[in-house]
Structure formats: C-alpha cells, structure tokens
C-alpha cells in the first residue's frame, strides 16, 4: 500500500489498523460464526437456565429409567400388585396407577418419545419450509406459483383430521410415520414467511454480487439467502418443537397418535385426566413435564434468535 501520507486513509482505518503501513503477521485467524454466537448465548441467564432444564429433561428421559430401575426396580411395563393408586413415595417416586404401574417410569418413557418426535418434526419441517420458501421466492414465476398453491392446499387440508385418520393405519410401522405425518403439515406458514423474506433479500446488492461472481442458484439460496433468515428459522424451529410435541400429545390424547401399550406424554395425560381431581399425580407429572419442556425450548429459541442477530443489542455484541 502506498505510504500512509494521506491522513484521511489513516483516519478511516484508525479503528481497525494500528499500524497501517506494516505487514500484518502472516496467520489469518478465522474464528468463525459459531464461537461468536455461542458467546452471546451464554450471556443470557434465562436461556442458560432453560438449557439446563432441557438437558435435565433429556438426561431424565433417557438415563432416568435405567437409574430408577437400579434403585427401585420398577420399569414402565412392570406392575406392582401391592400398590394400586398410591401417591408418590420413596418406592414409587411419582406414585402408581390403577393397575400398579409405576408413574415415574412411565412418564420418563413417554417423555423420551415426545422429545424425539418433537425434535425430528422441527428439523424436518423447518428444513422443508426454508428450502421450499427460498426456492419459491428466488426463482419466481411458475415455480413460485406452483409451490405456493401447494402450500395453500396443505394449509386448508384439515391436518389434524388427516393425521388422525391415517396414523392408526400405520400403527405397525411405528411412531416414525407419525413424525413424518406431523411434519408434512407443519411447515407451511414458515414457508410463506421465508418466501416473503427471500423476495426482499434477493434484490439486495450482496446477492447481486454473488450472482455476478457466478455463484450457482443453490449456492445463493443456501449460502446467502437462508443464513440471512437464520434468526427467523431458528425461532420457528423452536416453536415447531413445542408445537410438534403438543400436536403429538394431542393426537395421542384422543388415541390417534401413539397407541397403548406404547407410552407417550399424550396418552398418559389422557388417562390421567379422568381422575385428575382425586388422584392428581396421575395427571400433573406428565402435564408438568410437558409444559416444562416446551417452555424451556421456547426460551432457548428466543435467546438463540438474539444471539444470531448481529445487530441485536440485547445479544450483548462483541463490541
């Protein structure tokens, strides 16, 4: 670079360069987005608490039954014929059901199912929404019209109904089918929002610059458009987890989702509702865990959104 005789050049770069004329050390340290985002996330106390709760849920759901069995000897399928409808006790931490099943073991097993279903559905539906919405917005024309017509169609189809009718038929294939069924009907609104954002983003100059550089359409969509919508997608994914868990529990509540003898929070809550007033432990633990999980997920999503948005002042930026 020519000697920094021009004071304006130095002034401009004063904030950035300490030694404008010197050669910088040869290693360029690329720290990357991830660590910056994580740092911002860690500063939110509420989010860390929620994260802790969620981790607890996972650990409890997957390791809990193992530990519990080691301590008390009960699993979700065994019955204690000496203890029907017992309130919580050291022997049965969450009490027992009418036929002597251990509520803790059952609840943890149900939690497992609900957690996995929720996560999978959120991933699939958000991914689908991002790709479909971005393609519709970026390509425009008949691609856009066709995709949006499909979206409208799926929005109008009574999803609850269709899943309720279809899923018992696939019972033998397991709960993975349920995941797909729920996911198919969950992505549409996000897709529309993604499309709207793509329409405004694609005229921005950095997209033009990328197009000019020769970046392929796929490259533009995945590297320039979708990352600039990441905050939207993250919030949406987390709300999707919550909605998916609720959808699954709703379906199972009516008997359409996860069927007995398989356990999910939904059918546990359903069987507990009947006796909710007299034997509250049958209902409250499952319901409480459900609310705690979805609440934790929502708070995390909110914090992630702030951490991902470089302009957000709430995130506590690196400045």
């Amino acid at each position: 670079m020519s000697a920094p005789a021009d004071p304006l050049v130095v002034a401009d770069d004063a904030a950035v360069s300490d030694h404008p004329g010197q050669k910088a050390p040869s290693a360029v340290v690329v720290r990357g987005r991830r660590s910056l985002v994580l740092r911002r996330f860690r500063r939110r106390r509420g989010a860390m608490v929620a994260l802790g709760v969620l981790v607890l849920m996972f650990v409890g759901a997957f390791l809990g039954p193992v530990i519990y069995q080691a301590i008390t000897g009960w699993t979700y399928s065994t019955q204690d014929y000496t203890a029907f409808l017992q309130p919580p006790s050291p022997d049965h931490w969450f009490g027992t059901t009418q036929i002597g099943q251990d509520v803790f073991a059952q609840t943890m097993r149900g939690l497992q199912k609900s957690l996995i279903i929720g996560l999978l559905v959120a991933l699939i539906s958000t991914g689908l929404a991002a790709v479909v919405g971005a393609c519709a917005g970026y390509f425009g024309g008949w691609v856009d019209r066709a995709l949006m017509w499909g979206v409208d169609l799926l929005l109008v189809i009574p999803s609850f109904l269709v899943v309720a009718i279809i899923s018992p038929a696939f019972q033998s294939a397991g709960w993975l089918v349920l995941v797909f069924l729920i996911a198919i009907f969950a992505w549409m609104i996000t897709a529309r929002i993604v499309r709207g954002m793509t329409l405004s983003l694609k005229e921005r100059e950095f997209v033009l610059a990328a197009r000019y550089s020769g970046v392929s359409s796929a490259g533009i969509i995945f590297r320039h458009l979708i990352p600039n919508m990441s905050s939207l997608l993250i919030i949406d994914a987390t709300i999707a987890v919550a909605t998916a868990i609720i959808a699954e529990t709703g379906l199972s509540y009516f008997g359409f989702g996860v069927q007995p003898p398989d356990v999910s929070l939904g059918n546990l809550i359903a069987s507990g509702t009947r006796s909710a007033f007299t034997f509250p432990w049958l209902f409250l633990f499952a319901g409480g865990l459900l609310v705690a999980t979805t609440l934790a997920v929502s708070v995390i999503g909110d914090a992630l959104r702030d951490a991902l948005d470089p302009a957000s002042s709430r995130a506590g930026g690196t400045k």
Binding site: M1, V9, D13, V16, S17, P20, V28, V30
Partner: peptide, 11 residues
C-alpha cells in the same frame, strides 16, 4: 491489505 485494511480483522 491492498485496500488498506488490517487482515487480522477479516474474521
């Protein structure tokens, strides 16, 4: 460097 910026700030 050619455009007058510090390469350490590229991250």
């Amino acid at each position: 460097e050619t455009v007058g910026l510090n390469p350490e700030h590229t991250n």
